[in-house]
Amino acid sequence: MTFDFQHILRALGPAIPSGPWKEALRAGLGALIGLGCVGLFILSPLVDLRTGLYLIAPFGATSVLVFAVPNSPLAQPWSAVVGNMSAALVGVGVCLLVPDPALRVALAVGLAIAVMTLLRAVHPPAGAVAMTAALSPDAVQSLGVWFALAPVGVGTVLLVVLATIYARISGRHYPFRQFEDRNSHGTHDPEPAERLGLNEDDLTGILDRYRQSLNLGVEDLARLIGAAEIEAARHRTGPATADDIMSRNLVTVGPDTPLNQVADLFRQHGFTSLPVVQDGDKFLGVIFQIHLIRRAREDAFRLDRRFSAAMARLLDQNRDRPVSASEIMATAMPRALPTTPVAALLPMMSEGDCDAVPVLDRGQIVGIVTRTDLIAALARHSLSAPETPL
């Protein structure tokens, strides 16, 4: 029997990719704020220690999940709160019935895992909650069932609430998105990258079949499958670049162009986007038709008038100070080089609300790739690709 030491060493190494420093900072700062706030509340002079409120070590483990991996099924509110509290109840019960310390710890943790699994509330820190109870029989017996409410229940609920607020502030989703949640446009269709032809039951079946239901949510699986399909499509697009498919004869506007002229160009050419440039074709941004609609809608709410009146006012060329292109253009958007592969443009346009990608050369716009350009290129490629025999 031979040993492949290189394989063994790789197996003993990290199993997850390295995370960006911003995400590490976000997670660490969240845990600091969360535990800090919980500690300030619990250790406040206003809180009577006789209520049983105090910090316990498993709160640190719960913080790792809810702040660092908020998409994990193990970190969701039901898992955290019900898991920790049910484990605490198990620990209290074992303390009252089993005098031997070693047996008490093993039994408390084992039973807690079984109960959490039955309740669909598996939460790894809950094992430490049960062990904490088993190792502190005197304190737990004095508190009784109250131990599950305070500190365990109160502390966990506080962490979950703080994690929810922090996720909203820092641009993450917690609790994780459900399969039937509305998309970015406010409708119930899945996001374009998640339209797989599979329903929630199909995806749940995949997770169950591969025993991954504790590691991944249905929504996340849909996103990963969609991303994998896009990546596979990228490998089939061949060597084509943005330079091969982009629109070159561009209609552009300047930053000071009034919006009534922008609207006229949209109507005249049937475009959905117009690049904004300075002298020498220096790229500044892009105006999409939706920008006009959003600005008019905002003005209608702000001025308490009808949308049609707000749009007419927005496009009125006789205003004292007409609204210009630079005031509504988008600047934070994907950009490409002439040498950017078409494959790299696919994820740019398949997610979010990006309808066109400007192609820049040393800061100057030399073309633009719209979704129409991309669809036409993919259609040509599919027609030229050899047929696969059945």
Rank of each mutant, 00 (worst) to 15 (best):
V359I: 15
V129H: 07
R306A: 10
S247N: 10
L32N: 06
G226Y: 07
L55N: 07
V369S: 07
L337M: 11
E229H: 08
F288G: 15
V157Q: 03
Q278P: 01
L103S: 11
I42V: 12
L65N: 09
R294M: 15
D208N: 10
T340E: 02
M333Y: 14
K22R: 10
S18Q: 09
E351M: 13
A385W: 00
C37S: 07
S384A: 13
G91T: 10
S324Q: 15
Q278D: 11
H291A: 15
D243H: 12
A88N: 02
A15Q: 15
P338A: 09
V81Y: 01
N215M: 13
L337N: 14
A310E: 03
A61L: 06
I230S: 09
R104G: 01
L216E: 13
L196T: 13
V152M: 08
R295E: 12
S308C: 04
A385S: 15
A167L: 08
W146V: 10
W78D: 01
L25V: 13
K282T: 06
T117H: 09
D181S: 11
N183D: 02
R313G: 09
L135F: 02
V94H: 06
A31I: 15
R234Y: 06
R177K: 13
G28T: 14
L390R: 15
N318D: 14
T132M: 13
R362A: 11
Q364R: 12
V90K: 03
T51N: 00
I375P: 06
H188G: 09
G270Y: 14
D244F: 05
G352E: 11
Q212F: 00
A106V: 12
D48C: 09
P99G: 14
P192A: 09
L29I: 14
P125R: 00
D373R: 04
D208P: 05
V92P: 00
D320T: 12
S136E: 08
A163L: 00
Q141R: 03
P347G: 12
L9N: 08
G205A: 07
A80I: 00
L383H: 11
F266A: 04
R177F: 00
D100I: 04
D201V: 14
R313W: 14
D189S: 12
P45E: 08
P258Q: 11
